[in-house]
């Protein structure tokens, strides 16, 4: 019923588009690429240390155009990476001081909770996966399962295809029922195809 009412009253031309996935998949890098391409400014800070994004970041009113001139308008929601474990000692190993590591871990746990809570408000989601990593993680499967259960359209962005260890086939095999587009958000590789796929998913 909620879904029906949401569909009835939502403006089809303006949706809330979420970037979801495990930490360090490149969600914020992709968010920045989208914003730089269409707004001329970046959105989130990025880091090689996991859990750099620990709060939901929203960019309103992004309009993109495809090759046919069709326009798609959305609010972009960059979410903290979803994880089942957060160990402050992992941050210490990456060179952080004890106090900062504990603070980051605490904020990261809150970020995961917020990401999950915000799932219900999304109208379409791009799941950003690191294509060099094993896609069969339970976090990925749980995210996908919850999106399906909520009937939210999904596009999988297999990121970091510029790296040698990237394996698109493994991601396609893990999630055969979804559209998967390989990109390098960092270097802008294949992002045009990503935008075209976005039009197919967000109708």
């Amino acid at each position: 019923m909620n879904k029906f009412l949401r569909n009835l009253f939502k403006r089809k031309s303006h949706v809330k588009l979420g970037l979801y996935g495990p930490p360090n998949g490149g969600k914020s890098t992709l968010a920045n690429k989208i914003c730089e391409d269409w707004l001329g400014e970046s959105m989130s800070s990025v880091s090689h240390i996991a859990h750099e994004t620990r709060e939901i970041v929203i960019k309103e009113q992004i309009s993109i155009k495809n090759k046919k001139g069709k326009e798609l308008s959305f609010s972009l929601v960059d979410t903290p990476g979803i994880a089942t474990r957060i160990d402050y000692e992992d941050f210490i190993k990456r060179g952080m001081k004890n106090t900062m590591a504990k603070k980051r871990a605490k904020e990261a746990t809150k970020g995961v909770i917020d990401s999950i809570k915000w799932l219900d408000t999304m109208e379409a989601v791009v799941v950003v996966l690191d294509s060099t990593q094993d896609p069969y993680s339970q976090v990925n499967i749980t995210i996908m399962g919850n999106l399906v259960a909520r009937d939210i359209p999904v596009l999988i962005a297999a990121n970091k295809v510029d790296l040698k260890r990237s394996n698109m086939d493994r991601i396609k095999a893990a999630f055969p029922q979804y559209n998967v587009v390989g990109i390098s958000a960092k270097y802008g590789k294949n992002v045009d195809e990503f935008y075209e796929e976005l039009f197919k998913v967000v109708k």
Binding site: I82, A83, T84, I86, K110, V112, I113, I116, K117, Q138
Partner: peptide, 20 residues
């Protein structure tokens, strides 16, 4: 499964670092 992750995050402290 999503709730399990959420509750796990709420319970994380210096002794309990989460789950696999």
């Amino acid at each position: 499964e999503a709730d399990l992750i959420e509750i796990t995050m709420e319970e994380i402290n210096s002794k309990f670092r989460g789950i696999e």
